[in-house]
Design a protein around this nucleic acid. Structure first.
Ligand SMILES: [Zn+2]
Ligand SMILES: [Zn+2]
Ligand SMILES: [Zn+2]
Ligand SMILES: [Zn+2]
Lengths: 126, 126
DNA sequence: CTCGTTAATGCAACCGAGTTGCAAATATAG
DNA sequence: CTATATTTGCAACTCGGTTGCATTAACGAG
């Protein structure tokens, strides 16, 4: 179920994503907004923003949840699928605007796929 | 650090992987061997078997750890990289013997990648 | 085979990400 | 302004995984 009422928590969270072009982990958001929003609320608002097609989520290499802005998704249609990149040096995670095509697999029906690429980001690949 | 002494726990765990061609989650192994091995030991042995190139691990869609047999890896050289498939109906997870090539990404150094494909397995794709 | 060393194990307590139940607060329609 | 439904905070909880430490067991030397 998506967002029904505009609240301060929602504004604060959306503001974090305006300021940041990279993905942000739920854990990091909890730290950043520690004095302003309870962690339960953060998880709940993120969940609703995802339902509404405002954000999308995925798991980083250690299994923690990351969120990033969606481009062109709506409450009913989520179409912004893409790989993600995690820098092993600085930990930064971001969305990759590339298409990787997944081959057909005999006798199986492929529905989704999640690709996480690890390496060094522009700043860290000296 | 790998395995130094042959123990009963190791035999029991390896036996599970002999009997099963699919991947097995750590959680499932703990359930299966509940009466025989402590969960701490299970995690530790799995870790060592991975170090030794006997098993490899990856995260399933919900972030839990899965293990499967390696083919042709040794303690020093881990070369058996491949995508994994998780069936959304029955939960089965297995290794895919296919190659998906990851494109170059401008200004970034790609070191690893993990691809998890979700869909319906042969048995469930009626 | 026995013994001593050291690796492996079991247990309990702990950690950290994420969830739940419920009462209190607040957004919004009327 | 008031009523009502949504949202929030808090505390307690769940669950996968880890840690510290005392006990047990593998195995090579003798
Ligand atoms: Zn970096
Ligand atoms: Zn993304
Ligand atoms: Zn299946
Ligand atoms: Zn595999």
């Amino acid at each position: 179920m998506g967002i029904i009422r505009k609240t301060v928590s929602i504004d604060l969270l959306l503001n974090e994503f305006e300021q940041e072009s990279n993905a942000i982990s739920a854990v990091d958001l909890i730290k950043r907004l520690d004095k302003q929003i309870n962690k339960t609320t953060i998880y709940r608002v993120l969940d609703k923003l995802e339902d509404d097609g405002v954000l999308h989520s995925f798991l980083g290499f250690d299994g923690v949840k990351w969120y990033a802005k969606c481009k062109g998704c709506t409450k009913s249609v989520h179409k912004d699928f893409h790989p993600h990149f995690q820098c092993l040096s600085c930990g930064t995670v971001d969305c990759l605007n590339i298409h990787v095509n997944i081959p057909e697999i005999p006798n199986r029906e492929v529905l989704f796929s999640q690709l996480l690429i690890q390496g060094k980001c522009e700043a860290c690949a000296a």
